[in-house]
Design a binder for these strands. Sequence first.
DNA 1: GCTCTTTTATGATCTCGGTCATATTTCTTT
DNA 2: AAAGAAATATGACCGAGATCATAAAAGAGC
Lengths: 198, 198
Amino acid sequence: MIIENLLLDFGAKRISYAKGNQLFREGETALNYYQVASGEVKMNNYNLDGKEFIQGIFREGQSFGEPPLFADVKYPANAEAIIDSEVLQLHKSQFLELLASHPDVHLKMTQTLAKRLFYKAIMVSEISSQEPEHRILRILDYLKKHVHRIDGKFEFKVDLTRQQIADLTGLRVETVIRATKALEKKGELKIRSRKVYR
Amino acid sequence: MIIENLLLDFGAKRISYAKGNQLFREGETALNYYQVASGEVKMNNYNLDGKEFIQGIFREGQSFGEPPLFADVKYPANAEAIIDSEVLQLHKSQFLELLASHPDVHLKMTQTLAKRLFYKAIMVSEISSQEPEHRILRILDYLKKHVHRIDGKFEFKVDLTRQQIADLTGLRVETVIRATKALEKKGELKIRSRKVYR
DNA sequence: GCTCTTTTATGATCTCGGTCATATTTCTTT
DNA sequence: AAAGAAATATGACCGAGATCATAAAAGAGC
């Protein structure tokens, strides 16, 4: 996260996206730095038969889609507003200038990328070689510990639908529903009025 | 990649690891920056029943295991020499000093992380939602285009065993063997004396 | 309150890739 | 050249999770 005034100083614009609208698409060239001012944005892929995979969900203060600004590659996924959202948008060239003139911000950016890489490393290994229940617990624990920074049993209310959990783990809704129930029975999580607590 | 003399100036050491030896393990705290001087190092995970997943393979000039130096996390995977290797090793504090005093090197580092993130984003989506043949082609195309920078049909000789392809894609050897054969029949790749060309 | 949509739920069936067993070919080492 | 190890190959079978169908509960909008 880069503080708003600094972004605005460098010419960032505040732009609104209605629920369901796309900010950019897989395969496009990256032109801007994006940071959520309010709302919720997801990055996702669709495979050939329409199945969605969610790369990540970004909330207030979080930036997304920066890697292609550094590496010379196209966007590996789409970005879409999950709910009505406002986004701070800064053109690539100004963004790079900002980093060059603010080493501390650059370092923070590097740390952000490093954290994301850590998350992806975990997920890719999980998805490739673990059974559904394990995968689900892993992503919940990751969100609990690294995103929401919550401690204590069942203190983390999972603000995701079963479908979203499925899309984050590469499973199917039905499998997630059955697996979460099995996990509740095992005492690994709680379900109160359909919401999952971990 | 950071040029060798610069690393040595900051106190890096050249260390040899025999084939099969581990440089660090999943869950350990990151203490050093690593860069391959010669040989080949892989980062991997093992799941509960011993199945391996290869996060990446690093060759001469490539660095690995940096994210935990930036983000405050433990290693998400092990590092192991695939063949006898020499590695340049620089202590975390000196490494961060190096970056602070050489903004160009820092930017290059950020670009490296960004590229790796790009690769992981592709793989995690592939693994989660695509069939074996698709996954295999994707990783081969990634290696061809982004690692070896080769152009032209069947010009890329894949220097991986079927088992390694399996461990990189989260598949099983038998599946990779069958899938590569099917892909050859479809004209997507060639197999000459058991080596895969793409 | 009523309607429409979204989300959760559950059973039945199917299928693809995993598993297991075994063989053959190639590479290494002595 | 022989022996051993590693990599590739192939068939038979199985099972976990996907798929399909259908329903019920909860939430959103009017």
